[in-house]
């Protein structure tokens, strides 16, 4: 349910993209990874209009993805944003199998299952342990997240609730993660910022055959 896999965006995940190209991003939402099925198309196609001018400040716009009777829906379904703004997708928990975002704007494909550039994936870790992750699409990218449960006596135990508000950044450039290893507390969130990558996923290696 809370597996680390950017190909399936679940309750504990968030996928965001910064739009640096003006135009219309028409996209679909799939309850499964897009390499398995074509995205669902709503009656009114989901779209984000990116104006050619930048705003005074970069804005972040959130889209909530839900299950509905005949598939997947997003609120809001249409957005108009300024150049350089960020749009992020998350689920309200009704999509238990996860979802994926895929669409095009100009010559650029934005795909949450195969991230290339200007993309953010986050995962909140619910259980302690060592999570080795890699790219399900076969690149050499890899890393490790150590998740610890603070024990009584550890100052982070008493302040755990406040610690949940801290995020940890892993910067992915091409096929390299920096840092490769991070340590966090149970319940904390790791942000992967992806730049100039060949279309990668962040996937727990235990989910990958042959690893």
């Amino acid at each position: 349910m809370h597996a680390l896999d950017s190909r399936y965006l679940n309750l504990t995940n968030y996928f965001a993209h910064r739009f640096t190209t003006a135009g219309t991003f028409s996209y679909g939402l799939s309850p499964l990874p897009s390499f398995l099925v074509e995205p669902d198309r709503a009656e009114d196609e989901l779209s984000i209009v990116v104006r050619p001018e930048r705003g005074a400040e970069q804005q972040q716009h959130d889209v909530v993805v839900s299950r509905r009777d005949d598939g997947v829906t997003a609120r809001p379904g249409r957005l108009e944003i300024a150049l350089g703004d960020v749009v992020g997708w998350s689920t309200d928990g009704t999509l238990t199998t996860g979802f994926a975002v895929r669409g095009r704007i100009g010559d650029t494909t934005v795909d949450s299952t195969a991230m290339t550039d200007e993309s953010i994936f986050t995962h909140a870790f619910g259980s302690p342990g060592e999570y080795r992750w890699a790219d399900a699409h076969g690149s050499t990218l890899y890393g490790t997240v150590q998740v610890v449960r603070p024990e009584p006596g550890d100052e982070r135990h008493a302040g755990w609730t406040a610690e949940l508000g801290r995020g940890t950044l892993v910067h992915v450039t091409g096929e390299r993660a920096e840092p490769e290893t991070v340590e966090i507390l149970v319940g904390q969130t790791v942000f992967w910022a992806v730049q100039r990558a060949p279309g990668i996923s962040i996937t727990d290696v235990t989910l990958l055959p042959g690893r």
Partner: peptide, 14 residues
Amino acid sequence: RICIPTPFGDICTP
């Protein structure tokens, strides 16, 4: 809601 600085500006999770 968690906000951190990233190469793409400050990003906040819901």
